[in-house]
């Protein structure tokens, strides 16, 4: 049943019809279109799988009582994901600010005397609303990330993105 195949060079057949006729071109186009649309869709599903869904779900977390957060004070609060959020009772009300400097990711410190945040890495300064006032963050125009503060009666809550 099995025989040795003939030398490869001896049986290369010439292309039939010599190049593309119109029907050939059309069928080729339809085929390529079908293939690309279907496989790209499958690929798209794959990308959807790989890209984590943007978490829009917020989780409301109890921080404390307004009566216990004196004006001018900053309350450090460790979020469930581990990073610190400062809740400021500033002149414009309650503000919740990330302690991660938008410049290169160092952690900022609250200076209660100057009522501002200072980043030790490149001497960035932010006011109590988290607006960059000096240093590289101010040059970049990048402020401290803020979180939504929700006050119900005497209770202060933070709306944090849910940790998966």
């Amino acid at each position: 049943m099995a025989t040795r195949p003939v030398d490869a060079t001896t049986h290369s057949t010439p292309a039939r019809g010599g190049g593309m006729d119109r029907r050939g071109f059309l069928s080729n186009a339809v085929m390529l279109l079908g293939l690309s649309v279907s496989y790209l869709t499958a690929f798209g599903f794959g990308l959807r799988y790989l890209f984590p869904s943007k978490n829009t779900a917020k989780k409301r977390i109890f921080i404390g009582l307004t009566s216990e957060m004196l004006p001018g004070s900053a309350t450090a609060f460790r979020a469930p994901d581990g990073h610190t959020i400062n809740v400021i009772h500033g002149p414009t009300g309650f503000r919740a600010l990330s302690n991660v400097c938008p410049h290169l990711g160092c952690t900022v410190k609250w200076d209660p005397v100057g009522t501002e945040f200072v980043c030790p890495c490149h001497d960035g300064h932010f006011d109590a609303d988290g607006v960059a006032t000096a240093g590289p963050p101010a040059d970049m125009g990048a402020n401290l990330p803020t979180f939504e503060v929700f006050i119900e009666g005497d209770l202060v809550f933070l709306d944090l993105p849910e940790v998966a």
Partner: peptide, 21 residues
């Protein structure tokens, strides 16, 4: 390197190319 083992069947038309592209 070896090529595919060629199998032959009874319904082959003699003289036609035994390979295709």
């Amino acid at each position: 390197l070896h090529g595919i083992t060629e199998l032959h069947f009874k319904d082959e038309t003699p003289g036609e190319s035994q390979h295709f592209r």
